[in-house]
Design a protein around this nucleic acid. Structure first.
Lengths: 156, 156
DNA sequence: TGCCCTATGCTTAGTTT
DNA sequence: TAAACTAAGCATAGGGC
């Protein structure tokens, strides 16, 4: 009895899906490995394993990070290729300004955070805090609480 | 005449290498695509194209960034799985201390950099600089020069 | 469950166009 | 240079254990 051609769709049977996943993952990693050897290049593959909540990579975390970094650097260069010089630089400047803004905000938040620690440790409010500072402290507290909530969602 | 089995080694002939690269890249992307459909997962592949100095990705830059981010978040969790709780926290603390050290160093370097600006703008050396400060200024200058050199190497 | 087997279909090196 | 072809080798779904 000749097997039917497999339909390209989600495999409902969990055992069949697990078997297929393991076989195909192995062969993808092998193919990527072959390509890097045959053509003398760098490459990587990142595959989410649906059965043990891990993410599997080829060849190894260190090299994957290298490839990712190179990719992310190169995408910047490609951006510039696809635009005329002027609009590229306008975007770059705008991004740099955004970064500067974020750095300043970050710095301000760090100062305020230190003030909060001082308050906690000395059990008295520092004298030179303004109403504005107290408002920012609330913002930061909310931000940190959200971050902690997100980390919980990831960890458990 | 039966073809010989291909040796798993760098293909010297450029045309053969180019043909092989394109065929194999296409099929890897296809295989990764099939895996994501069959198993309902996320995955990506990042391949350096040796012929046009680009880096090619599957499925697209946006999703690749998503997969990368998820991978980098998860690797933290895996760290904790592969260790007992105690050594995990020891490592975490050690990393946090390293980060604090770097933040302090960064802060110090920023102070010194401001001092350098002051020197440039006023054309006279600030009075409260120590020999140690001057030494650090040299280190920073060297560091920045190296960074600029690296960016040049990437951009041109 | 996971491993091995095998028939079928897919991939691909080398060739032709 | 690239696209199409083809034979050989490879991948893999399904079955057996």
């Amino acid at each position: 009895m000749p097997r039917e051609k497999v339909k390209m769709a989600y495999i409902n049977d969990i055992n069949a899906r697990k078997a297929s996943f393991n076989k195909r993952k192995k062969s993808i990693f092998k193919k990527v490995s072959e390509l890097t050897i045959l053509c003398g290049i760098q490459a990587c593959a990142i595959i989410q394993n649906p059965f043990d909540f891990q993410i599997e990579v080829w060849p190894n975390p260190e090299r994957v990070d290298q490839v990712i970094e190179r990719y992310q650097n190169t995408s910047l260069i490609n951006e510039s290729r696809n635009m005329n010089q002027e609009s590229f630089f306008i975007q770059r400047i705008s991004k740099a300004q955004q970064k500067l803004h974020n750095l300043r905000k970050d710095n301000y938040e760090k100062k305020i955070t230190l003030a909060m620690f001082e308050y906690i440790q000395t059990r008295k409010l520092p004298e030179n805090l303004t109403i504005e500072d107290l408002k920012v402290m609330d913002d930061i507290r909310e931000k940190y609480m959200k971050e902690i909530e997100n980390k919980k969602a990831i960890l458990y």
